[in-house]
Design a protein around this nucleic acid. Structure first.
Length: 423
RNA sequence: GGAGAGAUGGCCGAGUGGUCUAAGGCGCACGCCUGGAGAGCGUGUAUGCGCCAAAAGCGCAUCAUGGGUUCGAAUCCCAUUCUCUCCGCCA
């Protein structure tokens, strides 16, 4: 949620910046400013009414104490009128606050000035390209065929037991999953991250805090009976740890890592994008979350980018890094790097990680603050990134490492898998 | 799931209808004292919103959350959430 103060200070700049995200904010900005004016006027009237009522109550107290209880009648009547007025004003204020928030949450985060303009994926800027040549093996198979050939992932079984997009991993496939999770966690811990194992379900406040609600309602699985949401990413619980908190300066930066299963309904997806491991309803991911001083959040973003790069290098995967253009940037993000690995057999790039700086957008919703040197509270900046998401890494490993004998396990993973070949 | 007890500031903890503008203590910050430190003494120490160009200041709200009773609620009533104890169930 954008800070009201930013909108009020320079509405035109907000409109101009959101245009980079292909978002026409003119109407919303105008409405927000006018609702806010109404809100403040109402608050002022209400406060005055309450102040008078407080004074009357105090006076009546004094009268009773001095045995002049009968004189209080007139004041009681005035108080009754005030009560009615303040109750009405309270309702008006509540409605104004709700209306304001309803409009505010509709505005996407402002893009960082360096974000290139553009409509979609084709306009993303190549930030970095790994130093790899991709050799297309003759007769290379896509991972869904390899999964079947080596009997390591069973999509049909998942469909039988649960539904499409809920595969079983089996034998060396299951072991590979476990190896990757441990590898990613150990790497993160080695880089100084603190490991968390979060709940897989969150309440409504948490889903709102990181921006899944109201924008992505319908993309999450909801346990209706208990009003809990299955997490679409560990970002949600791990960032919400800090909801409604004022951190001390020395608590920053926060650098957390968490492994979790992730659950996504993926309503509206179709075609080649959902084949095999490309898009699942349940998948595993190791997520890194930073909470940073606003002055240093872009340094943190670059740190995260370097860190994710080292993982891909260690796994020997052909990768590239894209800086997302305005049109491809998510609702909540100010700047995002996407990491893609090349899938030789599918002959396409697969997104395996997305590293973003949300600046104060999530913090403002969550009331995540810290105390600055001057003693004032300020909103912290939040960032997160996948490090990494398993399915597409597995897909890329299977496809890129296949040879006549089987699928070679990268050196870095062998101590985790306990085998060096899937055959 | 059943029964009971509870939730007060950064922390502990007092507070059963009006002066609560929340006692007291701890912690923290600053000052005095000291050769220095400690002890001691003094002062200060929440968050959000509004008024104000801003600061100062003032007002409003907040004693788990949401309602209610009352001229007036931390205090009384109702609901919810969470914590603890006992019982039941259970990996």
């Amino acid at each position: 949620m954008l800070q009201l103060s930013i909108i009020k200070e320079d509405p035109q700049q907000v409109i101009d910046l959101l245009r980079i995200k292909n978002f026409d904010a003119r109407e919303l900005v105008e409405e927000i400013i006018s609702i806010d004016k109404h809100r403040r006027e109402t608050q002022k009237k209400l406060d005055e009414g309450l102040a008078e009522a407080n004074n009357i109550a105090r006076e009546i107290g004094v009268m009773f104490k001095e045995g002049r209880g009968r004189e209080a009648e007139a004041l009681k009547q005035r108080s009754a009128v005030l009560k009615k007025e303040t109750q009405e004003l309270g309702t008006v204020l509540e409605e104004a606050v709700a209306a304001l928030e309803e409009k505010l949450v509709m505005l996407p985060n402002l893009p960082h000035p360096s974000v290139p303009a553009g409509k979609g994926a084709e306009d993303n800027e190549l930030a970095e390209s790994g130093d790899f040549t991709v050799d297309l093996t003759e007769g290379a198979l896509p991972h869904w065929d390899l999964a079947k050939k080596y009997d390591i992932i069973d999509f049909d079984l998942g469909a039988k037991v649960t539904g499409a997009g809920f595969p079983f991993y089996k034998g060396k496939g299951a072991r590979l999953q476990r190896a990757l999770i441990n590898f990613f966690l150990d790497e993160a811990i080695g880089a100084g991250y603190v490991e968390y194992q979060p709940p897989l379900f969150v309440n409504e406040d948490s889903a709102f805090g990181t921006g899944q609600l109201p924008d992505k309602d319908g993309q999450m699985y909801l346990i209706g009976e208990d009003r809990l949401y299955a997490i679409p990413t560990a970002e949600v619980p791990v960032t919400n740890i800090y909801r409604d908190m004022i951190l001390r300066r020395e608590d920053l930066p926060v650098r957390n890592v968490a492994y979790s299963s992730c659950f996504r309904r993926e309503a509206g997806s179709y075609g080649k994008d959902v084949r095999g491991l490309n898009r699942l309803h349940q998948f595993d991911k190791v997520e890194i979350v930073h909470i940073s001083h606003p002055d240093r959040s872009y340094d943190a973003l670059e740190d995260m980018r370097r860190y994710v790069t080292t993982l891909l290098v260690k796994l020997g995967l052909p990768y590239r890094v894209l800086k997302l253009c305005g049109g491809d940037l998510s609702f909540t993000s100010a700047l995002t790097y996407d990491f893609e690995v090349y899938s030789a057999a599918q002959q396409r790039w697969l997104e395996v990680s997305s590293v973003s700086n949300f600046e104060a957008f999530q913090s403002n919703r969550m009331k995540l603050r810290f105390r600055d040197e001057d003693g004032k509270t300020r909103l912290a900046h939040t960032l997160n990134g996948s490090a990494l998401a398993l399915p597409r890494i597995v897909a890329a490993l299977l496809e890129n490492n296949q040879n006549s004998r089987g699928i070679a396990i990268p050196e870095a993973l062998r101590s985790y898998t306990g085998f060096d070949l899937i055959s």
